[in-house]
Amino acid sequence: MSDEIQEIEESPTGEYAAIAERYKAGEELTDEELDTIADVAVSVLRDLLSFFDARESPIDEYEGDEGELILDVTAPDLAVLIGRHGRTLESLQTIFSLLVSRKLGFRYPVAVDVEGYKSRRHDKVISMAHSAASRAVRQHSTVSLPPMSAYERRLVHIALRDNDRVDTHSEGAEPERRVVITLV
């Protein structure tokens, strides 16, 4: 096991116990506590990036629409971190989330993005959902979207939940699971 990952795994969680307690109680965290969480997350991400010779890549921090911390790695030639259809990025996110949670001692929503890929994909999936819904209404038919990750399917369901002219549900088995849009 590498020294970086071993160091992450052996890190004490006691130092973050007060933050964990306040967060779990639903209290609003102070800017200093949020900075501490961000520092831990950036440290873990840099350790993971070191395996791709990208440890010193710039990382932009910002708050997402649902209050999550988003870390966007902004360096050229990091397509390897995104992978085909974002699958490598999904795997990186899973490992990253586990390591951050373990180090903090609680789960705080932190997302990793690379060159804004997730943001662009989010917008594309929402647009695709609205377009497919319009097509279902216009053609009085059912429209099946291409296979998507669970996260992307959730985006479609959320994007169309207020559209009273269509209904959505998911069909199929992973990795071919897709959203089907039907006329109400």
Rank of each mutant, 00 (worst) to 15 (best):
S2V: 02
E4F: 11
Q6H: 09
E9A: 12
E9H: 12
G14R: 08
G14M: 09
Y16K: 01
A17H: 07
A17Q: 12
R22N: 09
K24E: 15
K24T: 09
E27G: 03
L29M: 05
L29T: 07
T30W: 11
E32N: 07
L34P: 02
D35G: 11
I37V: 11
A38V: 06
D39C: 00
A41N: 03
S43A: 13
L45V: 08
L49F: 08
S50N: 14
S50E: 05
F52I: 13
E56K: 12
S57P: 06
E61H: 08
E61K: 12
E61D: 02
D65F: 08
E66G: 05
I70L: 13
V73G: 04
V73H: 02
V80I: 15
V80N: 12
V80H: 09
L81Y: 00
H85G: 03
G86R: 01
R87N: 15
L92Y: 05
L92E: 00
Q93R: 10
T94F: 14
I95P: 07
L104I: 07
G105A: 12
R107I: 01
R107D: 05
A111I: 04
V114S: 12
K118Q: 15
K118E: 05
A132R: 02
A133F: 05
S134A: 10
S134R: 14
V137W: 01
V137S: 00
R138G: 02
Q139W: 04
Q139A: 06
S141P: 00
V143A: 06
S144A: 13
S149A: 08
S149D: 02
S149G: 06
A150Q: 00
A150K: 07
E152G: 02
V156W: 04
D162G: 11
D162P: 06
D162I: 04
D164T: 13
V166Q: 10
V166K: 07
T168F: 01
H169D: 11
A173V: 09
R178A: 10
R178M: 12
I181T: 03
T182F: 04
